[in-house]
């Protein structure tokens, strides 16, 4: 068990740049009242960002300019979405998704 000093410094650097965007809104918003339009804009963020994260996992950014599609992820995603709509359960959806992906990778 050891810690390489270079790796430790990289971890600290990464921690600082991760902390800034997480903390800034909490420290800024205290002092200013956000206008109605901004609050409304923020209300659209959850659905937008969750969609972005899902789509982002399907897109494969290759070295060339054309973004590819990770068909394996897409094929696993479709039944996972159906199960999510059907069960409305976070836990069941995650377990189901893992199993579908394991099946796709091992048997297809």
């Amino acid at each position: 068990m050891s810690v390489n000093i270079t790796i430790l410094l990289i971890i600290i650097g990464c921690a600082v740049v991760t902390l800034i965007p997480r903390l800034a809104p909490f420290l800024i918003v205290r002092n200013i009242k956000l206008p109605e339009a901004v609050m409304k804009w923020l209300s659209f963020i959850p659905v937008c960002i969750l969609t972005a994260l899902i789509v982002g996992s399907v897109i494969e950014s290759g070295d060339d300019s054309f973004p590819g599609i990770n068909w394996q992820v897409l094929f696993a995603l479709i039944p996972t979405l159906v199960i999510a709509i059907w069960t409305k359960s976070l836990l069941i959806t995650v377990i189901f998704g893992i199993i579908v992906m394991a099946v796709l990778r091992n048997f297809m």
């Binding site: 659905v47 969750l50 969609t51 994260l53 899902i54 996992s57 992820v73 696993a76 995603l77 996972t80 979405l81 999510a84 709509i85 409305k88 359960s89 976070l90 959806t93 995650v94 189901f96 998704g97 893992i98 579908v100 992906m101």
Partner: peptide, 13 residues
């Protein structure tokens, strides 16, 4: 894939 599955469930919820 658990991560993507979780985002999918959170979006549906």
């Amino acid at each position: 894939f658990a991560l993507t599955a979780m985002f999918a469930a959170l979006l549906i919820l």
